[in-house]
Write a protein that binds this DNA or RNA. Structure first.
Lengths: 245, 245
DNA sequence: CGAGCCGTTGAGGGGATTCAAGCTCAGTGG
DNA sequence: CCACTGAGCTTGAATCCCCTCAACGGCTCG
């Protein structure tokens, strides 16, 4: 494969369009290719496509042979699976800086469906590119392992936090997790009631009742569609009250 | 580091003690070092310690800086976490062929506590050994990635199967999973009721009622302590009855 | 304006929890 | 030998959390 190396100190106008995007990336520090130096980065950005997905749009679907991994730059992505009874279950969320679809690097089909929750900005990275880089850059392999372990710990955190105890506690935990994706603002993405149900294994009516309750208590201020303002102080207090019992 | 290379075609008596163990390993085909050829294997086995853990004995504890990963050769291992309320939650099981404690390869402390459920046979593999081998054997890196992805999928399967729906369905799913560790026999490990509770987020009384129910229906025949004979046909039938509703 | 989706709220029922008592069984010591 | 003990398990009764079924309101869109 032949590609032109572009010195990164040239003025922005002279850069490959994607190079500009990579340099100003919101998550460059903790993205997969963040471990690469500028020289190495110069060789890859032409192959990385910036792409966008609107809410409820699938990024990839379960079972499809994967040819790329994605870095989430902005927004929230959910992973969906189905029980044998046909019930939808959301098993994990991913946010800015997370790497999704790693199965593709092993030549495996995607294990679940990845769907955008909010508008999502992604970098599509061809699996072949990563695998060929890996032979050259030992650091990249290390970064991959770190990301895989992070995904694993997220999955286990999900079990401890979001499937344990009373419905109200699980909802509060979920809100904390979503708010963590938006640390600077208190305007958060609020899933549809049916989605909350799929994440926390409760009916959408229960989700609705609990959300309404939090609204009455001043923890949430609903801002339809799919958004809310969260009072972090009251949120923390509500959670502590649950955990003491 | 200096070590003697031992030709693997020598009679067993002349081999390094651990070499004999490695060659006759029950899970060599799908263990981490299974990707290595005999020559490479000859260089490592002296550093791998075979070890054994009895039921309820910790293999490693959460937060401890990890210096080794382990391959499970025999038995079942559980991973334990605690919710902020202090409730114990078992978040995953590992069985023969599984690699546990991968965090150690990243220089991270263990993320949770690993405890033997049954008597467990392990290979303790120093993290430093894997990391130094990795530079030499590209295949080993690939095998590592596969294992990490497998652990991730296990964790997500756990959410879809074991935290969804009625308590009876979750218990049946758990039994299927445990029976999967012992494909050739119908004598399975049956956790204590309190442990079942920690895996499926139910009280130990509920677990007891359900187990008793399955006993009455002839799905299980209890063989204390901590064992049972499972009638796989009736198990499958019971599960299908749940999933149709 | 009617259709359809999402969300809310109520009523009734059922599954799971909690509290509690009694059981089995291995181990201990009189 | 047998009472005593304690851990694990079982079972019952009352309570409660959550589900299901249902009706209704707000909103967008054809």
């Amino acid at each position: 494969m032949l590609m032109k190396t572009i010195p990164l100190h040239l003025p922005a106008e002279a850069l490959h369009p994607q190079a500009t995007a990579c340099l100003s990336c919101e998550v460059r520090g903790n993205a997969l290719f963040g471990v690469l130096d500028e020289h190495a980065l110069g060789r890859v950005h032409a192959h990385i496509a910036s792409q966008e997905a609107l809410g409820d749009q699938a990024i990839y679907t379960a079972g499809r042979p994967g040819s790329a991994v994605y870095t989430v730059r902005r927004g929230i992505v959910r992973f969906e699976r189905f029980t044998e009874g046909g019930a939808r279950r959301i098993v994990r969320l991913a946010g800015p800086g997370d790497l999704i679809g790693q199965e593709a690097l092993l030549g495996r089909p995607y294990a679940e469906e990845a769907v955008a929750c909010t508008t999502v900005h992604l970098c599509r990275i061809p699996a072949a590119l990563v695998m060929q880089m890996s032979h050259l850059e030992a650091q990249l392999y290390g970064a991959l392992l770190v990301r895989w372990q992070k995904a694993l710990e997220h999955a286990e955190d999900w079990v401890t936090d979001l499937t344990t105890g009373l419905a109200r506690r699980r909802l509060l935990k979920l809100l904390g997790r979503i708010a963590g994706f938006e640390p600077t603002s208190d305007l958060i993405w609020l899933p549809r009631r049916e989605e909350i149900g799929a994440m926390l294994d409760m009916s959408m009516e229960t989700a609705s009742r609990l959300v309404s309750g939090l609204k009455r208590e001043g923890v949430l201020e609903l801002m339809p569609p799919s958004h809310a303002r969260m009072h972090r102080g009251r949120w923390r207090q509500a959670l502590e009250e649950m955990d003491t019992y």
